[in-house]
Amino acid sequence: MTREEARQLGRIAVGAGVAGAVGAVGAALGAGFVVLLKRQAAHARAIIGKPFGEVAPFADKVYKKSYGDPVELLLLGDSIAAGLGAEDADGTLGARLAKGIAKKTRRAVRLTTAAKVGSESWMLPEQLMSLLPSYRPDVAVIVVGGNDVTHRVPIADSVKHLTESIEALRVRGAAVVVGTCPDLSALRALPQPLRSLGARASRQLASAQAQAAHGAGAYVVSLADVVGPFFITNPDEMFSLDRFHPSAVGYKRTAKAMLPSVLAALGVRDQVPFGHRAPTPT
């Protein structure tokens, strides 16, 4: 998350805080709550910085080329999908997924990353437009939502763009796996009550994403369930230097957690574990 994203999180918290505080205990306490949240957001911006800039490591290539018959893997979404926070290309989510797919399928994997740092759900169609019309991914992985929360994008708008992108990918012949919005309660760099407000908004979006993605025929992975506890209990290991994006270890754990649905989407396995949801057969 960049400084601007932290600033926007402060703004959505202020909006939510005003409504809750005014409704519960009156305007005077509401005003004090706003001041508190503004101070907390300013402090968060001061400590976050941009140690990685705003460009993720470039990881696109063919993994395990000697296996042949490459699987076409596409990554769409925000900074997590792009791999910001990883020290090098091999530590990104895309690279980790590619290696996991290659190991299980004994096929090469060609990774294409259209995800961009700072993206919101409305930018998914733009990412698809950046691909050649002839490009046909075997499986597309989408991770998006954190910036929708911090930028106060209405949930209905977020899921609309997500659904349309899933449908467009399926027209291309791709199976789709959606990692829902991470639970922002893991972001210890945000003090309370700012963190709780962001966490509540992220959980609401994740629930709506899961319902919409499943309805559109995608596999759904609840990142809050399958990997969130690791970030909460081991933040020093799982987060990168900015305390917002995953580290290489965090991406390794996230890829491992998402892999069952990716493999199921490819027809390599039948069942998916807790925190995963397969599309309803048609």
Rank of each mutant, 00 (worst) to 15 (best):
D90Q: 11
A89H: 07
E237Y: 09
A21Y: 03
I101K: 07
A201M: 01
R106L: 12
L84N: 05
G250N: 12
R277S: 09
A212E: 07
Q271H: 13
G173E: 02
A95K: 06
L205E: 00
A224T: 00
G198E: 05
T105L: 10
R45K: 14
P182Q: 04
E54G: 05
S207E: 12
G91C: 05
V153S: 03
A102P: 07
A31Q: 13
A216I: 05
P125A: 11
T233M: 06
R152Q: 09
R170K: 15
G267E: 08
R243V: 01
D60I: 06
T180C: 01
A89T: 04
K256G: 06
V149C: 00
A278R: 09
A208I: 01
A257S: 07
P279W: 05
V109R: 14
V249N: 12
S79E: 09
G26P: 08
G275C: 04
G85H: 09
T180I: 04
A95Q: 03
R200W: 06
P70T: 14
A13G: 08
G85P: 06
E5C: 08
D69K: 15
I101R: 07
S134G: 09
L132E: 11
T150E: 02
V171A: 09
Q271G: 08
I166Q: 10
A41H: 05
R195I: 02
L131F: 07
L259H: 00
V149H: 00
H214S: 15
V35Y: 11
S196L: 02
I166P: 06
D270W: 10
A27H: 10
S66D: 15
A224Q: 02
R107K: 15
G83R: 02
S222P: 04
R253P: 04
R188D: 11
T280E: 10
T233S: 13
Y67N: 14
